[in-house]
Write a protein that binds this DNA or RNA. Structure first.
Lengths: 169, 169
DNA sequence: AGAGAGCCTTCACCGGAGCGAAACAAATCC
DNA sequence: GGATTTGTTTCGCTCCGGTGAAGGCTCTCT
């Protein structure tokens, strides 16, 4: 999706259209003009006269925001789990579990809900689910996905967090 | 929530911390330096030297975005405490306490009110509340939240305060 | 000022429950 | 026949909630 350059405030009417359609846009704000305050993350502005590299940097950021509609994993028609250009094959049971987790990506799915999905007529044992979750974890790790445990509630699928949080000397 | 001003690239390490916690931030980019490309909507930048009004305008926008979105913690339907970009699971007792504190985020909640919430039929020991507050503190610290004590009044939940050095009043 | 009394923090410990992981065994697919 | 998939058992770790105890901080009383 292309970023539209808009002169402000000359092209105010055109700006309103872009805002309604949700198109990413960069306002070129003339000198001595106060820029509009936009909460919308797909809108930005530069003060004229502006360095061409700065304009390009802001355009690139807006493009990234527009196209990066928070990547979400999916299971395609062939039973492959896809996420960000990568994919992996799943066994039937794993596909059932992954399906339940993908449907509620980022939210908790109860153990019983997952179990009922994989074994509608009743799970073999309590531990069967644990073991399959363990196997699923190992299979999806290379994709940048991880299954996190929420104790006594269930499991949660999310993109792997690049944990840099503890680096205090 | 206050917007933090960060010099780029001098304070890169500090920027990483702010990104991790999801604090709104404005980068002050020196001349001849290329700005970083951030998809995060709570990050923006200005080219130095910059007009003070432009800086204020961008700070105001970031503030609006921050308060518009997840500037306030919340406990979702799955019992997870979410704040900005992060979340953590809570044990049942911790969820009761956190619930009371989140409802009155930024204000004092009495010890008895919290105790009655966690143990409606009476707390096991007077000390039990203290210990659970301690455990809650440690659990929510990585989220950028802290529980502050107001002596003989109760407890108060707030976002962790950052360095005073370069913040805006 | 010194002593003492709340008030609160922090630590260490225990019993119980939830969950992870390895290792093994049976069934199935190619 | 070899590899993959699935189910089961077993062991042990970690978390959870409660309790006692040690200590720091602050205010008040004398």
């Amino acid at each position: 999706m292309d970023v539209v350059l808009v002169r402000w405030p000359e092209e105010e009417h055109r700006l309103d259209e872009l805002r309604e359609t949700g198109s990413p846009r960069l306002l070129l704000v003339g000198p001595q003009v106060s820029p509009p305050e936009a909460v919308d993350c797909l809108e930005d502005w530069v003060r004229l006269p502006a360095d061409d590299r700065d304009v390009r940097a802001r355009v690139a950021t807006l493009e990234a925001r527009a196209s990066n509609g928070h990547a979400q994993p999916a299971i395609d028609g062939d039973g492959l789990l896809r996420f960000r250009k990568h994919w992996t094959a799943l066994s039937p049971v794993e596909r059932s579990l992954a399906g339940g987790l993908v449907e509620r990506f980022g939210a908790v799915v109860g153990r019983d809900a997952l179990a009922k999905r994989a074994w509608p007529k009743g799970a073999p044992t309590r531990n069967a689910l644990d073991v399959h979750v363990l196997r699923l974890r190992r299979r999806i790790a290379p994709l940048g996905l991880e299954v996190r445990t929420v104790r006594s509630r269930g499991y949660l699928l999310q993109a792997t967090a690049h944990d840099v949080s503890f680096e205090r000397a």
